[in-house]
């Protein structure tokens, strides 16, 4: 049913730390593995060993180069590389849900997870059109729409140890750049993290109100200019001779 719930009890989602993500793709493949074996149809691959291999993925890692604007302090700022994982942001105002003609797309009232009920999906693709983030992919083999499930079949799963009831991508991320939790609860760890690190929305102007947040990279290349640090290199000796002399004195002190 494609009417969005007026409010959801929880806002489960991911917080992704762009300051920490090393772009290793672990989350991408872990997601592929879990969701191929679990929720709904497998994520298929076409021409898997051929000339033009392509397949369904629910999470993909982009990378960008950002060149800071030159300033008097930094006339030639170095460019930065930023790895950028992207999966469904489980938007509060999810356009992908309301456009769906069959009701296959829906947002869960209890936790806000946006899902596709594959049994109802006609594969018209409209929801993917409506998603600004490219978070939905039509599986070529099954002809139904695929998207991040927030691992709904893990996070409540009683067959999994408590500690592992988190999304597959979160559990696997070697750098700990992915955090999972209730962004509706201001006291949750994720909400605190977002507050501390000025977590941001992607394409806020699209009005989708994403639940997932991104932590911006910390300022880079801002080592203080040498003069600030100069005291730490105050010479004790200019030449080896002087150095030996200094040694003698210095050794007395220990």
């Amino acid at each position: 049913m494609t009417q969005l719930p007026t409010k959801t009890d929880k806002k489960l989602g991911l917080v992704i730390d762009l300051d920490t993500c090393v772009g290793c793709h672990a989350c991408v493949i872990s997601c592929k593995g879990w969701n191929t074996e679990n929720y709904g149809a497998p994520l298929s691959d076409q021409d898997a060993y051929g000339e033009n291999p392509t397949g369904t993925f629910l999470n993909r890692v982009h990378s960008y180069e950002v060149t800071p604007l030159a300033s008097s302090a930094k006339p030639h700022p170095a460019a930065q590389t930023i790895h950028f994982p992207k999966s469904c942001l489980h938007c509060e105002d999810a356009p992908c849900v309301t456009v769906c003609p069959t009701g296959a797309s829906y947002k869960r009232a209890e936790d806000g997870i946006v899902l596709v009920n594959e049994a109802d999906c006609i594969g018209c693709g409209l929801c993917a059109w409506a998603c600004p983030y490219g978070a939905r992919e039509l599986d070529q083999d099954e002809g139904v729409m695929k998207k991040c499930t927030l691992c709904v079949d893990r996070i409540y799963n009683e067959n999994i140890p408590e500690i592992d009831r988190v999304p597959s991508c979160v559990r696997t991320c070697p750098a700990g750049a992915r955090h999972f939790g209730d962004l509706g609860d201001p006291d949750s760890d994720v909400s605190k993290l977002v507050a501390e690190r000025d977590g941001m929305d992607l394409m806020p102007e699209q009005g989708t109100k994403p639940v997932n947040k991104y932590l911006p990279p910390r300022p880079k290349d801002d080592l203080p200019e040498f003069d600030v640090l100069a005291p730490y290199l105050e010479p004790v000796a200019e030449n080896p001779g002087g150095f030996i002399g200094w040694l003698d004195k210095a050794l007395e002190k220990i």
Partner: peptide, 30 residues
């Protein structure tokens, strides 16, 4: 990667010496 994650979580500094700024060197503060 786990170590870098710990360092980042503490907000400690990473300096990357590398002609190429990708991967670990992309998250390096300097």
């Amino acid at each position: 990667k786990m170590g870098l994650g710990k360092i980042k979580a503490r907000g400690a500094k990473v300096i990357g010496v590398n002609p190429i700024r990708s991967g670990y060197n992309a998250v390096a503060d300097e």
